[in-house]
Structure formats: structure tokens, C-alpha cells
Write a protein that binds this DNA or RNA. Structure first.
Lengths: 185, 185
DNA sequence: TTGCAAACCTACTAGTAAATAAGTAAATTA
DNA sequence: TAATTTACTTATTTACTAGTAGGTTTGCAA
């Protein structure tokens, strides 16, 4: 079964949110490419907040499947896959969803904010555990606070998807490689 | 002489840009608090792009004065002041201007983009020189590529102003302190 | 004191935004 | 097969957006 209209709207909404920002796209930007009418988008997502909620929820689902699939792999490879994922974001000229939601934070309704918070905490905890495990296995250099290390990795990699819009592509690869190098023993 | 209307518009525009995003505020959001009419804002800044340009220019000017004032201080103190500056951004519930411009990048006209690029390069170069100097003086740990280190510091600190909107205040302080600790010998 | 420009205001336009009401065709279920 | 639901469309509304044309006031300069 090909993806439903609902799924296509979420995908396109996510694309637009991360390329242009929540307030920079309209329902027309979604309905036109999908060759449906404005009201059809409202049928699936009565308000733009409902769409934002669905996008946040989708990211939670995807990350959940991702972390399950990665569970068996060793910390180093898990981190590499994570960083490569951000590389693909960079190549598609989007920014990370966390940064996109963060800069548009005050445009989001309370339930969307909660969903975004849950997703973000999921990512941070996953990274924190990964780092702890890598340290326990002697693959990673010891750091004082694993959550802080996780926060620094997350923030520098997601900020890079933003920063390189302004500077250059090379800067992304530099930061990406450096994150791994710094952690490895 | 108290600050002119023009200056007040730039200040308020900058506040709104960094609190809500470029597409989330209107000229009405500027004219109302300043108790002037919509057209008065258009008198000073015919288009919203002109306002964005002036905001970018203002940041360049401020950073220029900042770097001049800091020139005599030693690297460690320069970095501390820089990080404290970001702490004040965090406290005012804004995000950093670089991240704000980056996420709204495709809403900006070419001349605004150029101005933002110049400002950002100014900051990166200032940080790079600071790190090199600190390393030469033996205050900072040696790193392979000083620009990469600068990029990582900049990205993790400006992303933190975004991330802590979603997570918690503590996370900002953690990252901030860790940046300094990691660099110091 | 006249002329003129800076800094506004009044009043408006054209376009776009999100959102809704009411209707329809096709599929699903009872 | 009758009733209902799903997935839309057509048509419209309300509200706001950036931007403009033209008039007014104020202060300064010739």
C-alpha cells in the first residue's frame, strides 16, 4: 500500500517545517504539491497545531524504531550511525527537528510542546546511555557527567545543521568527525 | 539623547526575531508597544528585509565593539565573557541571533544573508584566534584544528539557548561550564 | 519668513493566512 | 440494500499581513 494522504501531509509538513520554519509555510504549500485542496489538509489536521503534533509524534515513533534496531550494535557504531543521520539532514538542506521546534517554540501549543519535550528527552537519554556504555566498555574516554556529554554532542551536531547554512559544507564534516574523535580512546 | 525611534525598532525587532522567529512577528508587534503607527515602521524600514538587514548590521557593530574592548584581556577571560553573554541570552528567553537567522534562512533576502554571513564569520574568526592564542600561551589544551574547536564551541553554546527551551535551565549551565573545563589545561 | 526635509499619521489596498460550512462520491458496515 | 463513514471538494469567512499614497506637523536652514 502506497503512503496515505495523511502520511504524505506529515512528510511534506516535516520537510517544510525543517526547511523554512513553522510560520513560513502554509496549508497551500502542502495542498498544491499533493494536488489536493486546502480543506483536505484541514480534514486530516483541523489546525496547524494538530499537524505539528503529528510531526512530533512521527519523530518519536521513528526514533523509537531506530533505537530498537540499534540496540544490539556497539556504542561506537551507534554513535556513527547517529552522526551519519545528521549528515543526511545537512545534505537535504534541512535543519534538525529539535532546533526547528526550539526556535519556533512560542508558536507551538502546550500539547505540541509536551510531545517535543518527550521526543527530545528520548534522544538525550539514548545518547547518555550510549556514552555510559561506551565508557564502561573502555571504548570512550571517561567524562565527568554523561548527560552533559550527551547534551554537548547533541547540541553541536544539531546546531551544525543550522550553522553550515551560513558558513560552508566543510564545517559540518569537520564538526562531525571531531565529535567522534574527541570521544574515542 | 534617548534612543531614537529607529533604534527602538531595531531593538524590538531583534527581540521578536530571537524570541519568536522572523515570520512569527509583524510590523504591528513593533508599532503597538512603541505607540506609533504601522506606517512609521515602514518609514524607517520600507520592507521587513530592510529591518532584518539593520538587525544583522547592528549585531556586527556590537560584536565589533565587543571584540575591541576584549582585545587586551587574556584568552581565558575573553572566553568566559563570551559564554556569560550567552548565559544572558538564555535568561532573557531568546535564542542566539545566528541560530535564529539560520532556521529562517530561506526567508531572508540575499543582502541580509550576506550580512549574516559576515557577522558569523567575524564571530568564528574571533573565537579561532582566541583559541590559538590560549594554546600558544599554554592556557588551553592543544587541539588539531582551531577553527573546528571554535565551531564546536559556538555551535554547542548557541544550540544550548535553543535546547534548554525544551529541556531545563540546568542543562544550559552544565554545557556552559563543560565547554570551559574541556579547553582548560 | 519661506522653503524644505525629517518624522510621523490617516486611510487604504491587495494578498494571503488559517479555518469552516455544506455538499458529494465512493467505500464500508449492519 | 440501506445507513453510515471516509475522504475529499467547492465556496466562503474572518483576520491579519506587508506595503503604499498622500496628508500633517515640527524644526531647521537659507
Amino acid at each position: 500500500m502506497a503512503s496515505s494522504t495523511r502520511e504524505k501531509i506529515i512528510q511534506l509538513g516535516d520537510d517544510l517545517l525543517r526547511k523554512q520554519g513553522f510560520n513560513a509555510f502554509s496549508y497551500a504549500d502542502i495542498s498544491k504539491p499533493l494536488q489536493i485542496k486546502n480543506a483536505a489538509v484541514h480534514y486530516h489536521f483541523p489546525s496547524k497545531q494538530d499537524l505539528a503534533f503529528a510531526i512530533a509524534q512521527w519523530h518519536k515513533d521513528v526514533f523509537d524504531r531506530f533505537s530498537r534496531k540499534m540496540a544490539t550494535k556497539e556504542p561506537k557504531d551507534r554513535l556513527k550511525t547517529f552522526l551519519n543521520f545528521y549528515h543526511s539532514i545537512h545534505l537535504s538542506e534541512k535543519v534538525d527537528i529539535i532546533g526547528a521546534f526550539a526556535t519556533d517554540w512560542y508558536s507551538l501549543g502546550p500539547n505540541v510542546q509536551t510531545e517535543v519535550q518527550e521526543f527530545t528527552e528520548l534522544v538525550i537519554e539514548w545518547l547518555t546511555e550510549l556514552i555510559q556504555e561506551g565508557m564502561d566498555l573502555g571504548q570512550f574516554r571517561k567524562t565527568q557527567n554523561t548527560r552533559t556529554t550527551a547534551l554537548k554532542i547533541l547540541s553541536s551536531i544539531f546546531a551544525s545543521t543550522q550553522l553550515v547554512r551560513i558558513t560552508s559544507d566543510q564545517d559540518f564534516t569537520r564538526v562531525k568527525n571531531s565529535i567522534l574523535e574527541e570521544l574515542l580512546n
